[in-house]
Structures are given as C-alpha cells and as structure tokens.
Amino acid sequence: MEITSGFILAIMVLAAVSSIQFFKGRKLNLQIMQHYLRSIEDVVKPEDKEYVWLGGYIGFRAYYRVNRDNVKKFEYTLTLLPRQSLLYFPIALLTSRHDKLYIVVKPQSQIKREAHLIQKGYYRIKPRIENEEFLKRETVVIGNREYEALYEKRRDVELLKYLVESLSKPGNIKHVSLTPSTNVFYVLMKPEPDTIEDDVRKILSFANKKLKTGPFSS
C-alpha cells in the first residue's frame, strides 16, 4: 500500500490533537477528583481516612472512619470518564455514560430489611441481589424516571423514595439500597460538582435520622 504525504499529515495531526487532549483531559480529571475529595471530606469530617488511587486518571476510593451519630464508616468510589483519551472518550460515553459515585454507608444501628430502588434501563447487566426471589416488586415513578422497587415492606420503599426526591437531581440517582446481611446503605449516582456537598449532607442526614430511628433500624 502506498503511503501518501496526506496520510502521514493526517497521522501527525491526530497525534498532535491526541497529545493536547491528553494533557487537557488529565488536568480536568485531576481537578474534578480534587474537588470531590475536598467537598465530601468537608461534609463527612472523618476522624480517620485512607485514599486508594485507582491508577491513571480514572478516580480513587476513599475510606472514612466516622464514628459519629449513627455513621460508623463512610466509603466511596469515584470513577471518571477518560477525558484524557481522544479515541476512547467517545466509546466511554456510550458504555459508562457519565462519571460515577458509589457511596457505602455503614451505620451504627442494624438494618433489618432489604430494600432497593433501581432506575429502570440503567444497568445493562442486572446486579445480583441477595434473596431477590423473596422480595416484592413494583414500579415507582420519581420525577420523570421509573424505578424498580424491590422490598420486604412497602414503607421502606417510601423512605428510600423520600431520600431520592430530596436530592438535588433525583434522576442522577441510579440505585439506592439497604442490605441487612452486610448492614450497608448504598447509593450509586451521577455526581454533580455544584451539588455534591448538599447531596452528601442529605445522605448522611438520612443515615443519622431515618436509619437510626426509622423502621429500617433495630
């Protein structure tokens, strides 16, 4: 195959643009990580903390020991779109779709019953839910989104719905659950830099008030 000067020029331009995108995207992802780290830590105010870098500019995991009010531990994983990659970024928009924040709260109180709200159509591969076959099911509408509710008692879903509706953009909440076997309160969401502090504050408030004194706790 004959390699023309035009082909070589196109490769050189692509390489130059990819290099510029790498440095710009890397800087942006680092700024996003720093923003979320500072914002969440300022709200949670942990007594001890540990961060684990996920490699490259993908994101990080944070482990906070809180031991305050009804929150024993607050852990989260932030994964970001590969803004530094000119070629992979469009693919990631189709597969990952957005930045993700996975929050795991371990309360002091004991969660008694299983409950889930899962945004319909979000998961391509449905997550494994323990004892799913024994849970009741129904569709719950929050804003303009439909959620699949799985639960033992209907009032538990109402409280999870109350939480989702109280957050800045309910449609950003993809999965929220309470699992008694691991005693975990879990939230998967699309984070927003401008509202992350308020959302985390409300998630903590839910754990401190509803999980401590509501029907979830013993």
Rank of each mutant, 00 (worst) to 15 (best):
N67F: 04
I196F: 09
V176R: 02
Q119F: 01
E75T: 03
E165H: 01
L93D: 09
L93R: 15
L86G: 09
N29G: 00
M1L: 12
T182Q: 15
K212M: 04
L167V: 14
L30M: 14
V66H: 09
L150T: 01
T79S: 13
I58E: 04
G6H: 10
K73Y: 10
I58R: 11
L14F: 14
Y102A: 14
Y88M: 05
K210Q: 07
L30C: 11
L150R: 04
F7C: 02
T179Q: 09
R68T: 04
N144L: 01
D99S: 11
V104T: 10
H175E: 15
F22V: 02
V140W: 02
V52C: 06
V140L: 05
P107Q: 10
L178K: 12
Y88T: 08
Y102E: 13
K190S: 13
I118P: 00
G59I: 03
N70C: 07
E2L: 09
P170T: 10
Y88N: 03
Y76P: 03
F89Y: 15
I8N: 10
M33Y: 05
M189F: 13
Y88P: 00
Q31P: 01
G121A: 10
L78P: 02
K174R: 11
V157H: 06
F216N: 15
I142V: 03
F60Y: 15
E114R: 04
V140F: 00
I173C: 02
P215R: 11
V141I: 02
S109Q: 04
V52I: 13
Y36V: 08
S109E: 04
Y57K: 15
G214S: 10
N172V: 12
L135I: 00
E75M: 00
N29S: 06
N172A: 13
Y147G: 00
P107L: 06
S166V: 02
M189I: 14
P90Y: 06
D194G: 12
F89V: 08
P46A: 00
T77N: 13
Y88H: 07
A62H: 12
R155G: 03
I20P: 03
Y123P: 03
R68F: 13
M189Y: 12
I203Q: 04
I203G: 06
D69V: 10
A92C: 05
I3T: 05
I58F: 09
E197M: 15
E133R: 07
D48Y: 01
Y123D: 03
V104K: 13
E75S: 07
I3G: 03
P90R: 12
R97I: 09
K72E: 11
P191Y: 13
E132W: 11
T179E: 06
E50D: 00
N183M: 09
V184M: 01
L28C: 05
L86H: 08
P170V: 09
I103W: 12
K120Q: 06
S5P: 00
G6T: 12
I196A: 08
E158D: 14
K112P: 00
L54T: 12
F206A: 10
L167D: 10
V141G: 02
V17G: 02
P82I: 04
V104P: 01
S96R: 12
T213L: 03
T95F: 08
E114Q: 04
V52P: 08
N131H: 08
K153L: 08
P191T: 07
K126T: 12
G55L: 08
F23K: 09
E130T: 01
P170H: 09
S168K: 05
L30N: 14
